[in-house]
């Protein structure tokens, strides 16, 4: 009996520890990255345009890019531009990686390398930071396209919200790796 009791106690403790760990892990997953203040977000009138700043090696951003692929199929008129933020200190081929491969497979996508200037101008500090610009040139969405690190499923929600008739800009948290090396 005593040993059973100890076993059950151990199981309880074990379960509590697990629960704590899972909660902590979930906290990390749902903790968004930082967002800067955009210097100027001006765009000429045109069609719907989505600009996304991507850290070439951020694993969470691959989920964002996968979401973009679905989005490109759903919204073929949406002009998608992926800006791989390449810091100056980064090696030359630093931007090649899985994210680049995914990005290239998105139909009609425009892949652009950014040395951080554009990112900073747009206030993007975390990979996956996106800007949705309506045909009038107004930024109607600013933030991440995923509901958490590496998690998809929120794109259509954001898109519906982005295309809401209220025309108000929507800000959303960005889940991804920092685009810039600290202290640089």
């Amino acid at each position: 009996m005593r040993r059973d009791w100890l076993a059950w106690l151990a199981a309880l403790l074990w379960f509590g520890a697990l629960l704590s760990g899972i909660v902590g892990w979930e906290w990390y997953t749902l903790t968004p990255g930082s967002k800067g203040t955009p210097v100027a977000i001006e765009a000429e009138p045109g069609g719907w345009r989505l600009t996304i700043f991507v850290h070439p090696h951020c694993p969470c951003t691959r989920t964002t890019l996968t979401e973009l692929m679905d989005l490109s199929h759903a919204e073929p008129d949406l002009a998608i531009r992926v800006l791989f933020v390449i810091p100056p200190e980064a090696p030359a081929d630093w931007w090649n990686g899985p994210s680049h491969t995914i990005a290239e497979s998105i139909p009609g996508v425009e892949i652009v390398q950014d040395d951080g200037t554009e990112a900073r101008r747009c206030g993007a500090e975390t990979s996956g930071h996106s800007l949705l610009i309506d045909p009038s040139g107004r930024t109607i969405f600013c933030g991440g396209l995923t509901p958490g690190r590496g998690r998809d499923g929120a794109l259509r929600l954001w898109l519906s919200r982005m295309k809401s008739p209220s025309g108000e800009r929507v800000d959303a948290p960005v889940f991804g790796c920092p685009l810039f090396t600290p202290n640089t």
Binding site: Y28, H57, P59, C60, A90, S127, P178, L179, T184
Partner: peptide
């Protein structure tokens, strides 16, 4: 394999998922 590292610019560290996999 999936999330070996987490990045901050060009600086990378072990991804928390790895630690979570190992620890949890």
């Amino acid at each position: 394999w999936v999330t070996p590292l987490t990045w901050a610019g060009t600086r990378s560290t072990t991804h928390p998922h790895v630690w979570a996999a190992v620890g949890l």
